[in-house]
Simulated scan of single mutants.
Amino acid sequence: MRLFWCAVLVLAGCDMGGPAFIGLEPMRISVGGSDFTVRQRNDRAEVIRTNMEWAPDAGAVADKMLIAIQQTTGCTVRKGTLSGDQAKAVARLKCVDDGTYAIKRR
């Protein structure tokens, strides 16, 4: 029984935002068969893949992550700023030119 509760606690943390993104409302989206949670704080975004995939191709997942960030935030990802792996990544955003940040909620 103890093992069950440990597993529940570990799995519950899989979609939790990183330190810079704790407390932010998650935005969920599916892109090309992959499910993602995106969080935005000012000009930064974090994307977490939340579905199971057997040996996902890093390049294909990165492309899907870019789309997920751009569709949920309404901002563009600054070229060369997406960093992470197939499960979790962060990126810098270019939002509105007037210095404000558009946060699009679904």
Rank of each mutant, 00 (worst) to 15 (best):
A89Y: 13
T37N: 04
R49W: 10
E53H: 08
D85I: 07
N51C: 01
T37H: 07
E46N: 01
R2D: 00
C95Y: 02
L24C: 09
K64D: 10
V90P: 03
L66N: 15
T73D: 02
M52W: 07
L3V: 06
A45N: 12
L24I: 13
A45F: 12
M1Y: 04
E53W: 03
A89G: 03
C75D: 13
T50S: 10
K64A: 09
S34M: 14
G59C: 09
Q70R: 13
T72M: 11
F4I: 01
P26E: 10
K64P: 05
A102C: 08
W54Q: 12
R41Q: 11
V77N: 04
R41K: 11
R92D: 11
R106N: 15
G13S: 10
P56M: 06
E46Y: 12
C14M: 14
M1E: 04
L3M: 05
G13T: 08
V96M: 14
R28L: 09
K79G: 08
D63M: 10
Q71V: 11
V90R: 12
A55K: 08
A102P: 08
K104N: 15
D63T: 10
L93F: 03
Q70E: 15
C14Y: 02
D85H: 04
M27F: 03
I103P: 02
S34A: 14
K64V: 02
D43C: 02
W5I: 01
G59R: 10
W5E: 08
R105I: 14
Q71W: 11
M16S: 05
A7H: 01
C14Q: 13
R92E: 10
W5L: 02
A87P: 01
P56F: 06
T73G: 04
T72H: 08
R92P: 02
L9E: 01
A68G: 03
D35C: 01
Y101V: 15
K88W: 12
T37V: 15
A102R: 13
L66M: 13
D97M: 00
M27H: 06
M1R: 10
V77H: 02
N51A: 01
V90H: 07
G23A: 12
D57K: 07
C95Q: 11
C95F: 00
G13V: 00
I29K: 07
D98L: 00
A58Y: 14
A45Y: 09
A60H: 02
V96K: 13
M27V: 04
F21K: 15
I22A: 14
M65S: 07
G33H: 10
